[in-house]
Design a protein around this nucleic acid. Sequence first.
RNA 1: GGAGAGAUGGCCGAGUGGUCGAAGGCGCACGCCUGGAAAGUGUGUAUACUCCAAAAGGGUAUCGAGGGUUCGAAUCCCUCUCUCUCCGCCA
Length: 425
Amino acid sequence: MLEINVIRANPDFIKERLSVKNFAHLSLIDTALQLDEQRKQIQHKLDAALNQLNNLSKEVGAAFKAGKKDEAEALKAQTSTLKETITTLEAEAKQNEETLQDTLVQLPNLPHQSVPKGKTPDDNEVVTTWGNTPQLPKNALPHWDLASKYQLINFELGNKITGAGFPVYMGKGAQLQRALINFFLREANAAGYTEIQVPHVVNEASAYATGQLPDKEGQMYHIGLDGFYLIPTAEVPLTNLYRDEILREDELPVKVCGYTPCFRREAGSYGKDVRGLNRLHQFDKVEIVQIQHPDASYNTLEYMVRHVAGLLQQLQLPYRILRLCGGDMSFASALTYDFEVYSAAQQRWLEVSSVSNFETFQANRLKLRYKDPETKKNRLLHTLNGSALALPRIMAALLENNQTETGITIPAALHPYLSFDRIGE
RNA sequence: GGAGAGAUGGCCGAGUGGUCGAAGGCGCACGCCUGGAAAGUGUGUAUACUCCAAAAGGGUAUCGAGGGUUCGAAUCCCUCUCUCUCCGCCA
């Protein structure tokens, strides 16, 4: 959420930046400013009335103590109209506050200066491309066919026990999955991230603080009876660990990582885009999160991008890095790099990671701050996160890109985590 | 699931209707003391909004959350959330 005082300081700049995100409702800025002005006026009147009441109450007390009962009663009588005023003003203030909040919540984060203008994924900027497209054997198969040929993943069984989008990994498929998780976690640990196991179910306040609520309500599975949500990403619990915290400067940066399953309803997509592992309702992911000083967060973002690139290089998967254009960025992000892996048999790029700096957007909702030793003031921190990595599409690319006539070879980086180095003969 | 106890500042802890943003202690910061440190000692030490050009200073709110009683609530009443103890159940 954008801070109202930032908006107040330079509304034209805010509008200019939001238009890069193709944000259509720029008039909300003016609405917010009006409501803010109104808020001050109401608050001012209310404070004055409360002040009067406080003073009267003190006088009443003093009069009673002095034994001047009549005087006290007279003073008491004066409070009744004052109390009516207060009640009215309080109702106004509450109404105003809610409307202002509703308005602010609708404003997306400001894109960083380097974010390219654009509307669709076609406008994303390719920053780097790494690796060569593998030479596949004749009759190369897409991963869903490989998965059933070698009995690695059973999609039908998932249909039976749950529904579409819940694959069942088995045998070497399940082991490969586990190896990837271990590999990713060990790499994150080596890079200084503290491994954390978090709940996979979160409450409403957590989902709100990282920005999943209120706008992406429909994308999460909701446990109605308890008011909980299944996590769509470990970002939610990992970042909320630091909700309502005031950190010391010397505690920065905070670096945490975690493996969790992720649950997404993703209603409304059909066809080849969602075949096999391309798009699921449940998938596994290792997430890295950093909480950083505002002055250092963009260096940190680059550092996180290098970390993710290193993983893909070790897995020898050809990838490209995209700087997302304004129109393709998420609501909460200021700058996002997407990683896409080349899936050779499908001949398409698959998103496997998204690394973002949210600046103060999440921190504002989280009330996540640090104490500035110079000014002694609490300032909002910057939050960043990235997938490192999401498993299913990595699995898809590994299977497809490494297939031979007789089986699938496993990249050397995973050998320490597996009891086999090859699937098939 | 049954019975009971509790939630106060960074932490511990006092406070059962008035001058309480809240005693005291710990911690922390700065100063004094010291050759240096410890001990001792002095001062300071919440957050948000707001008034003022800014500083100084002032106002309002906040003692788990929300509502109520009252001229006045940390203190009384109601609802909710959470924590702890005992019993039951259970991986």
